[in-house]
Amino acid sequence: MPAQQRADARRNYARILAVAEREVAAHGAHASLEQIARTAGVGSATVRRHFPTRRALVEAVSATRVEALRVRAGELADLDDSRDALLTWLGEVVVYCATARGLAAALTPDDADAGTDAESPYDNSCATVIEAAGTPLLRRAARDGAVPEDVTMAELLTLLVGIALATEHRADPEATADRLFRLVVAGISPGH
């Protein structure tokens, strides 16, 4: 949100974001924008002014989580075992996505709601941050021979998002996502 916005616009933004965080936690990425506007005490147009697309709203809600995962990747970069560092971080990403409703949707490829303008600030900033955070871990693991050199972070994120979306409505999404992730790891790195 631009710093030069009027005080009332900044308050509206903060109120909308706080309500959106609760609604997304309860209903996932498809939380009702109209309900968010009503609960925040603003009109739908005000929500759209601050968040022109549903993706923009979900990404704003997910920003703190994404930042925590970015920081965590940096912390794990110092581990001696590059494979362990990568797999620990990927496991944390998938579990976080499965339990923090809306985050997996924020990491999915752009859809019609996000538009197709490559210059849009709403293209997929969450995925960009996560991909940039994990790429050094992946490169190091590939350099050490722990994963195939042709595996990309975008491919790994696609797997993680798929697992998270498939498990977020389960009775125990964390355990189910972790189990599926461990199955994928066993399949992509047999013998380790």
Score class of each variant (00 low, 15 high):
144 D>K: 03
126 C>N: 05
64 T>S: 13
161 V>D: 13
7 A>C: 00
122 Y>H: 07
67 E>I: 03
95 V>Y: 01
180 L>A: 11
60 A>F: 10
187 G>R: 15
42 V>D: 10
67 E>T: 12
87 L>Y: 12
143 R>M: 01
84 D>P: 00
22 R>H: 03
159 L>A: 08
41 G>F: 03
130 I>Y: 04
45 A>C: 02
171 A>Q: 15
163 I>D: 11
123 D>G: 09
139 R>G: 02
92 E>K: 01
164 A>M: 03
104 A>I: 08
112 A>D: 13
118 A>L: 14
32 S>L: 01
116 T>M: 14
155 E>D: 08
23 E>V: 05
72 R>S: 07
19 V>E: 12
109 P>M: 11
22 R>S: 03
161 V>S: 11
146 A>E: 10
88 T>A: 07
138 L>Q: 04
186 A>H: 13
33 L>C: 05
111 D>F: 01
70 R>E: 15
138 L>M: 02
67 E>L: 09
16 I>R: 05
43 G>R: 01
127 A>K: 06
172 D>F: 04
156 L>G: 03
58 V>Y: 11
85 A>S: 08
174 E>M: 02
27 H>T: 00
152 T>G: 15
116 T>F: 15
108 T>K: 15
161 V>G: 09
179 R>Y: 10
14 A>T: 13
40 A>K: 06
158 T>F: 09
51 F>H: 04
95 V>E: 12
32 S>W: 03
122 Y>P: 03
94 V>L: 01
46 T>D: 06
66 V>A: 14
144 D>W: 00
137 L>K: 00
139 R>T: 06
32 S>G: 02
188 I>D: 14
62 S>Y: 00
114 A>V: 06
106 A>L: 09
184 V>S: 08
108 T>S: 15
160 L>P: 10
97 C>Q: 15
173 P>S: 08
164 A>K: 07
109 P>S: 14
30 H>D: 14
89 W>C: 01
88 T>Y: 02
9 A>H: 13
62 S>K: 00
50 H>S: 03
163 I>Q: 11
156 L>C: 08
67 E>K: 11
103 L>H: 05
88 T>M: 04
147 V>G: 07
84 D>Q: 13
139 R>P: 00
64 T>W: 05
30 H>Y: 11
84 D>V: 08
176 T>H: 07
32 S>H: 03
125 S>E: 12
177 A>C: 01
32 S>E: 03
163 I>C: 08
176 T>W: 08
146 A>K: 12
26 A>N: 09
174 E>G: 13
180 L>C: 12
121 P>V: 01
141 A>T: 05
50 H>E: 04
153 M>I: 13
46 T>V: 10
33 L>R: 15
110 D>E: 14
5 Q>S: 12
146 A>Q: 12
88 T>L: 04
49 R>I: 06
167 T>Q: 00
112 A>M: 11
93 V>D: 01
14 A>H: 11
37 A>W: 01
52 P>Y: 06
163 I>N: 08
27 H>E: 02
78 D>Y: 05
115 G>V: 10
140 R>D: 11
101 R>P: 05
135 T>S: 14
29 A>Y: 10
76 L>N: 04
77 A>V: 04
17 L>P: 12
101 R>H: 13
83 R>N: 00
143 R>W: 07
19 V>K: 06
4 Q>F: 14
